[in-house]
């Protein structure tokens, strides 16, 4: 029953975005976010939308998956849109209803907000979360943040923790399944009763799970020591990340994106919003 849980939103594939260096992708995502929020006029906005569609297209992630990923955010979008509509003040109200006054500026802000949030989710999704495996993401982050090691920041330790957590999630899910079956065989009922009773029924699952997790941690620590682990000291990596032509091409594409937005902001001021 717990088997369907997938880790993150990674969608395996072999598109150019999948193949891009994770370090590059993290930085490009930041550039993209900055781009979205610097767009100031109609053309720049259209350019953002087109560019996002272009990213979705080259990622080869089915549109359905991306839309599904936005579902939980719909309420947030709707809520912020409503707030923008009613709380933005302008010159002449579009219509009045008691104390509620809706100005055209409010509608405009709400519209822009929706576009920004959707573009943000779709764009960062296809560049980073859908096309990068959690492990590549952790690895990329560790290497990007490597300079912080000089400031005594535990970058390596943090990334090791992430790796081990990712490694043990399936193991612990499997174990939860086993313990639940064992408790069911002893008459535990997880699917009936009030919410409180159901939560109580989970206690006999959580306790053995925690005990076993600590035992595993202990075993793993000894096994890691046997394999000469001593933190970051003198450690090398099997896979070295090198920027390939594809990575530079991606950087160029994003540079064009940000340059395009700046140019459109400057040269089409008449349409500014």
């Amino acid at each position: 029953m717990l088997k369907e849980i997938t880790l993150g939103q990674f969608f395996p594939g072999s598109s150019p975005l999948h193949k891009t260096d994770p370090r590059a992708k993290i930085i490009l995502t930041l550039i993209y976010i900055v781009g979205i929020f610097t767009a100031k006029n109609v053309f720049a906005f259209l350019f953002v939308i087109l560019f996002t569609l272009f990213l979705v297209a080259i990622s080869k992630i089915p549109l359905k998956i991306i839309l599904k990923g936005m579902k939980p955010i719909i309420y947030v979008i709707a809520f912020t849109a409503v707030i923008n509509i009613f709380w933005t003040k302008g010159e002449t109200p579009l219509f009045e209803f008691g104390i509620i006054r809706v100005y055209p500026e409010g509608l405009k802000f709400a519209g822009l907000m929706i576009i920004r949030i959707i573009a943000l989710l779709a764009g960062t999704g296809v560049v980073l979360t859908y096309t990068t495996s959690p492990i590549a993401l952790t690895d990329g982050l560790e290497r990007l943040l490597a300079p912080l090691k000089k400031l005594k920041m535990p970058v390596h330790e943090f990334s090791m923790m992430m790796t081990i957590a990712l490694r043990f999630i399936p193991t612990l899910i499997e174990e939860t399944d086993k313990i639940m079956s064992a408790q069911k065989a002893r008459g535990a009922d997880f699917s009936q009763g009030s919410l409180i009773n159901r939560a109580k029924a989970l206690i006999p699952v959580m306790i053995p799970l925690f005990v076993s997790a600590f035992r595993r941690a202990d075993d793993l620590a000894v096994a890691m020591e046997c394999r000469c682990y001593r933190g970051d000291i003198g450690r090398t990596r099997m896979t070295e990340l090198h920027m390939k032509p594809l990575d530079w091409l991606m950087v160029l594409v994003f540079m064009i994106f940000i340059a395009g937005i700046i140019l459109l902001n400057i040269f089409a001021p008449g349409f500014s919003i």
Binding site: P134, T163, I164, L166, T171, R216, D219, L220, A223
Partner: peptide, 11 residues
């Protein structure tokens, strides 16, 4: 060691 699950580190 005994338990194969508890000695593998990477994913």
């Amino acid at each position: 060691f005994q338990n194969p699950d508890n000695q593998l580190v990477a994913t």
